[in-house]
Design a protein around this nucleic acid. Structure first.
Lengths: 181, 181
DNA sequence: ACTGCCATGTAATTTGTTACATGATTAC
DNA sequence: GTAATCATGTAACAAATTACATGGCAGT
């Protein structure tokens, strides 16, 4: 979902395709790092759909297209942001969204996270039940990949718990010792 | 890399596309779970490339294509399996390979895992250095996604450590208390 | 002069998905 | 008889990649 990363970045300020790519490499390469070959055509497509607009500028003799988000783009982005994630283990959609949660209210974020936690927990349980039924017929490596899934989900749940505590703690100015997150 | 999952499954025994899909859902859906719309065309393509062959059989009045791997397919699969993974966070290639590591020697596996550990550690360090340089200009959520990456890599390293201990422990009949993996 | 970075873009290809279409068997 | 499962397949579409192509500026 490259489109939403681009919209998210353009929410903050106007940028060129090149600048967006740089920012992606720095801050989102962790879960998404598109190439120029997908960024530029996507920007063009979004411009046609009136989600973004651009000005042609010349800086230091260099030709640039400075893209900015439109009202239509902004509202479509926020709407996407508010939609709860369907979870799939190697789908970075939720990180993509979470990265931009600053554009939502704390309360809304906590609710979204909580609903996501439920989904993750149910995935964890699915794996746990597969493990229970089929461990005996599983080899070391098959079992290891299953453990990977379980540990992955567990990590996500812990990570979410810490994040939630950080958000609510920040809001209610709690005692919680949160320096560590 | 659907092709290698299919080859991997067919290494074990002859199967129909339908059976493969079932097995995937049960055992690899954790990291890959292709649809019929990709399995069947891929099987056809692999058959043309002589990586697999099939027999038409009729069982319980049902028409089936029972696919089996060829020597060419087997050697291409093993070659792929031996190639060290290029790591990318939301790329399940290494799980895909690891799932089939039973077809390699323990020694080879330990070496592959060890080389992979190095890659993961270097990714972890990349994130850590980004964090060090840019925490001050990062919002809560941006930081959270970065922490996700770090914790994810940490989890992988721990998971690999346990797996390595299990493999070497098994081989050398060590004292190690490995019941827990 | 040459290398590296800035900046944009296209074309071909890869790798899948979803939706559709068919038809047989099994269990209720 | 009808719903679920077994079994295969195609067509249209989606989302992104890699490789290629262009050109200007800045520093050595």
């Amino acid at each position: 979902m490259l489109i939403y990363v681009l919209l998210g970045f353009l929410c903050e300020k106007d940028m060129t395709g090149y600048e967006i790519k740089q920012k992606m490499t720095l801050s989102t390469s962790n879960f998404i790092d598109a190439s120029f070959g997908s960024i530029y055509p996507m920007l063009k497509k979004m411009e046609k759909g009136e989600l973004i607009k651009y000005e042609e500028v010349v800086e230091e003799g260099r030709f640039k297209k400075s893209y900015g988000i439109t009202e239509k783009g902004k509202s479509e982005f926020i709407e996407w942001l508010k939609t709860p994630c369907t979870f799939s283990p190697f789908n970075y959609e939720y990180l993509n969204k979470l990265f931009f949660y600053k554009y939502l209210d704390d309360l809304e974020v906590v609710q979204l996270i909580s609903s996501f936690q439920t989904t993750v927990a149910s995935e964890y349980n699915k794996l746990a039940s597969i493990e229970e039924k089929h461990v005996h017929e599983m080899g070391v490596y098959e079992h290891a990949t299953l453990m990977f899934g379980k540990e992955y989900y567990q990590m996500i749940m812990n990570w979410h718990d810490r994040l939630t505590r950080k958000i609510t703690g920040k809001k209610e100015n709690e005692h919680e010792n949160d320096k560590e997150f």
